[in-house]
């Protein structure tokens, strides 16, 4: 099962590398990507899927369809896709977007995934607030709510998420009764 975590910060600054790891009740994965420009990134994700009891990898491609900058905000719309090089029947594509100021964050995403077992879709909405505004280089903190639905499940799952961000490191932790812990680590260089 491909997760939605790596939609956040899906493209780095030009010539930037990003290493991400994610762990939740469905899968554990590591995703490494390179951004030749701010418009797109290419990368490889390796996953251990606990839901389908499977292991696989994806070549991933993310493209920035649209960005709008204002003095205090930035909004983005991305196309994302992934293809298993050993099994072309396993692939996914989708859209995700965000609107962000230094104080507020709103994000959304929709993804269709295909595999040998059962196709499924995922969608999410995320809202966040920064309780204080740090300067460049400070520790930044975000308090967020995420609500998501996977078509393999039966209902929306809503839970709080806390995100810490300093320098090149980011850690995001979420917890709910159904999906247990969502942990997302990221290092950019």
């Amino acid at each position: 099962m491909a997760s939605l975590y790596s939609q956040a910060r899906s493209i780095s600054y030009p010539e930037g590398f990003t290493l991400m790891s994610h762990s939740d009740i469905y899968k554990d994965s590591v995703y490494f990507h390179y951004s030749p420009s701010f418009k797109y990134s290419v990368g490889l994700e390796v996953a251990k899927d606990d839901y389908f009891d499977d292991e696989y990898s994806f070549f991933r491609f993310t493209y920035l369809l649209n960005r709008k900058n204002t003095q205090n905000s930035q909004s983005n719309l991305y196309f994302q896709s992934g293809l298993d090089p050993e099994n072309f029947d396993r692939h996914f594509y989708g859209l995700h977007g965000d609107w962000e100021t230094r104080r507020w964050f709103v994000g959304f995403g929709y993804k269709e995934s295909f595999n040998d077992f059962e196709d499924f879709s995922e969608k999410y909405l995320q809202f966040g607030i920064a309780p204080y505004l740090g300067k460049y280089g400070d520790l930044h903190t975000w308090l967020m709510f995420k609500t998501k639905k996977n078509s393999l499940g039966d209902s929306w799952s809503t839970y709080p998420v806390i995100k810490f961000f300093k320098g090149d490191f980011l850690i995001e932790l979420g917890y709910n009764n159904k999906t247990r812990t969502d942990a997302h680590l990221m290092y950019r260089f």
């Binding site: 780095s12 600054y13 960005r67 003095q71 205090n72 930035q74 460049y136 930044h140 961000f165 950019r188």
Partner: peptide
């Protein structure tokens, strides 16, 4: 315009 986080600044 559009400089909303440390990653933008770092780039």
């Amino acid at each position: 315009q559009g400089m909303v986080c440390d990653f933008c600044a770092r780039g």
